[in-house]
Design a protein around this nucleic acid. Structure first.
Lengths: 257, 257
DNA sequence: CGCGATTTGTGCACGTCTTCACAAGCGCCT
DNA sequence: AGGCGCTTGTGAAGACGTGCACAAATCGCG
């Protein structure tokens, strides 16, 4: 949908800087800005201030301005940013002007959901093929796509231009799949398997581990709990507060694999 | 499985520091160390050096040592770290000595997968209840749990001690669900909906946006592509390299909602 | 018992990221 | 035309995170 047509685009509108190497922190926030901008666009506003957009994106307004200024100066002082123009710029910088093909490997529990996740389709990506190593799953249809055997990866990679791969296999298979993806020319991998992948230079890997996210939250829960119970009791009771440490968790049950 | 019994635990073994406020960056890595440690434990090694563990966790060894030193000194110079002891310590710091109950709201595409994800169960969490607002889904059984209507949240929250909530609803419902979770005492939220949540102070929110991860990868793809094509042609051809900018992506199709 | 090999724990320097604060620029109103 | 209010873009300072390099500590062996 190219409904973003900035009204009075002057002659040199749409000029973008020559992909200056943006700070990673900035790159990681651009997609969030983009999402916020689409939301703003739907409300009908044609411009938005850094204050308004930063609120919608959940960041500090100075940080947002600095981030956007790295793309070039697309704001107007006293007015704000042109929503449609900014959307175009960010999409260009992120390389979303073309719909990128993604290969998804592993159609187990999580892979199944990812294959059906419409957020990929609506935000610049197209799942080009589904793969699995389990012969039982090959042939199955998932949201309009037929699951292929992983051995067909090289053939499919030739037909489509596959640059991005998503790994949703068990950890034990992840490294092997990664190697195969790299072998057919994939240079970006999104890894959902709970393990570290080793890849050659030039290949980017991002990892998403759902359990890790919960464990980080668990830490904060633990901290909040120890903050509210410890200072309440002066000497400490439930968890004995010694000058140098707490009672050992030795007797409690440990959790693990 | 409390099979981690460090052999010769001296009298004051297991003493942990009183939850010093660790740097966020360190906290975010501890779960990764924990996962690597479990992997090492399965190989039978009783101790591991910072070099070996850092390789398994995919980080710099100095960083790992500094991280671990913040928990207290649990390594032995010349030897390394006691695997079982370190597992206990990290699990304690992360608050994983108790299996935490988690409420999952939204059993659509993604929520369905999360409900069946065994990584939660094996790494310290228990999905206590599933909720959805759609009456059609209420009553459905997913991996042993019956989906309840979101209105039953307060009742369930009283029975279980719910401190962590996972939101896997569409973005439009996420804020409302967050408010309801906070209302029943949830103080940590893992948000899969592509939107910013506003919550009171003291409530932690972590966000996972699958499309954003892909968009970040897309940026790097874009950059890699412009690096390999641009320097090849001196003056720039495909993407005209002007002193201040490139040709506009104006004519190309924009992607978005 | 002493020595060398090994590995931890950390001081220090460097780079990155964040935030404040404000000058410069823009549009609108009079 | 001029002034006023609003907003961007950025300099500078500080907080934070990273990685090197090395002293201190421990073990094993002769």
């Amino acid at each position: 949908m190219s409904q973003h047509r900035h009204p009075g685009t002057p002659s040199r509108a749409g000029v973008v800087p020559a992909l200056p190497d943006l700070p990673e922190a900035t790159v990681a926030r651009l997609p969030e800005y983009l999402r916020a901008l689409h939301a703003v666009a739907e409300t009908g506003h044609e411009t938005i201030s850094s204050e308004g957009l930063s609120a919608a994106a959940g960041v500090n307004s100075a940080k947002l301005r600095k981030d956007l200024s790295q793309l070039g100066s697309y704001g107007t002082r006293g007015v704000g940013y042109d929503v449609a123009l900014l959307i175009d710029q960010i999409e260009y910088v992120l390389g979303l002007t073309q719909r990128r093909a993604v290969a998804l490997v592993g159609v187990g529990n999580l892979g199944h959901a990812l294959a059906g996740y419409d957020g990929f389709a609506t935000r610049g990506f197209r799942i080009a093929a589904l793969f699995d190593a389990d012969p039982e799953r090959v042939g199955e249809e998932i949201s309009g796509l037929i699951v292929k055997h992983i051995d067909e990866l090289p053939r499919v990679a030739e037909e489509e231009s596959l640059a991005i791969g998503v790994i949703a296999t068990p950890a034990a298979s992840a490294q092997r799949v990664a190697d195969e993806l790299v072998a057919v020319g994939v240079t970006s991998i999104l890894n959902f398997a709970p393990c570290v992948l080793s890849v050659p230079d030039g290949v980017d890997v991002r990892k998403v581990d759902l359990a890790i996210e919960l464990q980080i939250l668990s830490f904060h829960e633990h901290r909040k709990a120890s903050l509210t119970t410890l200072p309440a009791t002066t000497g400490g009771s439930t968890l004995t507060a010694l000058p140098g440490g707490l009672a050992a968790p030795d007797t409690q049950e440990a959790i693990g694999t």
